[in-house]
C-alpha cells in the first residue's frame, strides 16, 4: 500500500472519523484498505490456486520460494483467535489438500505450514494468512525450531498455568490441584513423625524445642509450595533472557 503523508489536521480528523465509526463501518473500512480483501473481491489480480465460499489461496508474488501459497479466509480477520471454529476446521482442511498438491506438483522435499499471530511473531499482513512454503535442502529458509534444555519445574509450572486457562476457555471444569505437593507434604509429615518418635525414645528433654522448630519449618515450606515456588516472573525471565 502506498504511504501517504497527512498533515496534522488531516490525521486528527481521520482519527476522529475512525472513532465514530460503527462496527459495520469499521469492517467496511478495513476491507477497503486491505490488499487481500481487495484480491478476494477481484479488485486486485492474483494467481488463484484454490477458492470456495470460505477461503481463497493465491500465489505469493514475493515468495520464500516459487510456489509459496497464501491461504486466507474470505472474511477479514486479523489473527487466528478471531476466527470462528467452523472456519478454522475448514481452512486447515484446505491447507492440507493444498500442501499435498504443492508437494506433488513441485516435487519438493517438504512443506512448511506457518502462521504468525502478532507482529512479534512475524505477522506481515493485517489479514490472517496461512503460509504454505515449498522447501528444498539448503534453501536458506529459517523455519526450523532449535531445542533447549529447560528445568522441569518451569515446564510443570507452565503446564499448570496454561492448562488452567485452556480449561476455562474450553469450559472444562477441572481444578488443577498440586497433587505432588500434597503427597510431598504428607510424606514429609510421615517422615518427620517417624523421626520424632525415634528421637523421643532416645532423648526426651532436648528434642522438644527442636520439634517445635521442625514443625514451624514444615508449615512454612508447605505454604511456599502452595503458593508456587516458581512464579510467572521466573518464567517471564526465562522467556526474556533465553538466547
Amino acid at each position: 500500500m502506498p504511504e501517504e503523508e497527512y498533515s496534522e489536521e488531516e490525521r486528527k480528523a481521520f482519527e476522529e472519523k475512525i472513532k465514530r465509526m460503527s462496527p459495520e463501518e469499521l469492517k467496511e473500512f478495513q476491507k477497503r484498505n486491505c490488499v487481500f480483501c481487495q484480491i478476494i473481491i477481484g479488485q486486485i489480480p492474483a494467481k488463484k490456486v484454490y477458492e470456495d465460499d470460505h477461503c481463497l489461496a493465491v500465489l505469493e508474488i514475493n515468495p520464500a520460494a516459487p510456489g509459496h501459497i497464501l491461504l486466507l479466509p474470505k472474511e477479514h480477520h486479523a489473527i487466528m483467535p478471531q476466527i470462528p471454529e467452523e472456519e478454522i476446521g475448514h481452512l486447515f482442511m484446505a491447507a492440507k489438500h493444498l500442501s499435498h498438491a504443492l508437494l506433488r506438483g513441485l516435487k519438493c522435499g517438504g512443506i512448511n505450514l506457518f502462521v504468525a499471530n502478532g507482529a512479534v511473531a512475524g505477522q506481515k499482513f493485517q489479514h490472517f494468512v496461512i503460509h504454505l512454503i515449498p522447501r528444498k535442502e539448503s534453501d536458506g529458509i529459517k523455519l526450523e525450531l532449535p531445542q533447549r534444555e529447560i528445568p522441569e519445574d518451569i515446564l510443570s509450572k507452565i503446564n499448570e498455568v496454561v492448562q488452567n486457562r485452556f480449561n476455562e476457555l474450553m469450559g472444562i471444569k477441572k481444578e488443577l490441584v498440586k497433587v505432588e505437593t500434597k503427597e510431598h507434604a504428607e510424606k514429609k509429615k510421615e517422615a518427620a513423625d517417624e523421626e520424632e518418635s525415634e528421637k523421643k525414645k532416645e532423648e526426651t528433654e532436648k528434642t522438644d524445642p527442636q520439634e517445635e522448630e521442625n514443625e514451624d519449618e514444615k508449615s512454612e515450606e508447605s505454604e511456599e509450595e502452595k503458593d508456587g515456588s516458581i512464579s510467572l516472573d521466573d518464567i517471564a525471565s526465562v522467556l526474556n533472557g533465553g538466547r
Binding site: M80, I88, L113, N117, L145, V161, R165
Partner: peptide
C-alpha cells in the same frame, strides 16, 4: 481447533506478545 484455543491460553497465561503455529512436513522442511 484445539491448537487455536491453546494459542489463546498461551497468549493470556504467559503474557506473550504473539504466537506462531508451525508444521514441518518432510525432512527438507525440518
Amino acid at each position: 481447533k484445539i491448537a487455536n484455543k491453546l494459542g489463546i491460553a498461551l497468549f493470556e497465561s504467559l503474557n506473550c506478545h504473539g504466537t506462531n503455529l508451525l508444521i514441518n512436513n518432510g525432512v527438507a522442511a525440518g
